[in-house]
């Protein structure tokens, strides 16, 4: 006997989807998925704090002690030690690594098929780029902010005002580096390809960013390379704010900082450059994900 099945909640015929609204929702859910996965992964959270700590406590302390031993000190800035100098750089490193690795999840999703679920959805592909960029930026920003708790260990005093200034600075850096990662991940079809990116792009960006040494007085070819490193323009503002809050005079941070053509850039100009870089990268990422197969 045919029992009438309770009419399922099937909406009438074909629903016309408002693509713009759907795209906004998609950005939200793609961002949310990234954040959810990140917040669940306690081990990763812990591991990603261990690496900066290693740099600060072992690499930083070791190098600073041996330099002092051979009559060094931080050139031109005797009032701060090396660990204090690299502390903002290590925050930048954490942001850089987290950004690039979170963007790698696109390659991972492609490998494991999940990306298809998003690619066939009735949404604009720009949602993937934007959602991923925001998801990665959020993770990297949280990672950077978490490192601020290490300030007392390295002998840096942070004021509440400095922390409030640092949060948007960290976010802008995270955004620029994540969008760069998304551009790369959108073009890379295999995990091996991403490995190459890490070795040939992420490490150079880190070393040339001024995270580990001041960017003045370098050989000409290296000066050129550091000036095209987007991370350099993001780490310098962090250093100015962190050391400034600790009472280091502006004259000293200027001398340690980034100059272009002999000129010290205003902080907002640096931030503007980093943000502009991120916006351009986001544009390229959207274009690259929209291309039809």
């Amino acid at each position: 006997m045919a029992v009438p099945v309770a009419a399922p909640s099937r909406p009438a015929s074909v629903r016309r989807i408002d693509t713009r609204r759907a795209t906004l929702r998609a950005i939200y859910i793609i961002w949310y998925r990234d954040v959810l996965r990140y917040s669940r992964d306690r081990l990763r959270l812990l591991a990603s704090l261990a690496q900066p700590l290693l740099f600060l406590l072992i690499f930083g302390t070791g190098l600073s002690s041996s330099l002092r031993g051979i009559g060094g000190g931080l050139a031109g800035a005797p009032s701060i030690n090396y660990v204090q100098f690299i502390y903002p750089g290590i925050i930048g490193m954490a942001v850089l690594f987290t950004s690039i690795f979170s963007a790698m999840s696109i390659v991972w999703d492609r490998e494991f098929g999940f990306l298809k679920e998003v690619l066939v959805a009735p949404i604009d592909r720009s949602a993937i780029a934007i959602g991923k960029a925001l998801g990665g930026s959020t993770q990297a920003m949280v990672q950077g902010i978490l490192l601020l708790v290490l300030a007392p260990i390295v002998g840096v005093t942070l004021t509440p005002l400095a922390v409030i200034e640092l949060i948007p600075l960290i976010f802008v850096l995270a955004f620029a580096l994540t969008t760069l990662g998304v551009v790369l991940a959108a073009g890379i079809k295999s995990m091996q390809g991403f490995q190459a990116v890490i070795n040939f792009l992420m490490m150079p960006i880190f070393f040339l960013s001024g995270a580990l040494f001041p960017l003045g007085n370098l050989p000409w070819w290296m000066t050129g390379l550091t000036r095209i490193d987007p991370a350099a323009y993001g780490i310098d503002p962090l250093r100015r704010v962190i050391l400034g809050a600790s009472g280091v005079p502006v004259a000293v941070t200027d001398r340690l900082g980034l100059t272009v053509g002999g000129q010290t850039l205003p902080l907002m100009a640096e931030v503007g450059l980093v943000l502009a870089f991120g916006v351009v990268m986001l544009g390229i990422a959207i274009w690259s994900l929209r291309r039809p197969a």
Binding site: V14, T19, F112, G113, F114, K116, E117, V120, P122
Partner: peptide
């Protein structure tokens, strides 16, 4: 876009 809104898809390889 209208096609995508009107179809469901179960892939050959898992996509979860």
């Amino acid at each position: 876009d209208s096609v995508r809104a009107a179809i469901g898809l179960v892939f050959q390889d898992p996509a979860l």
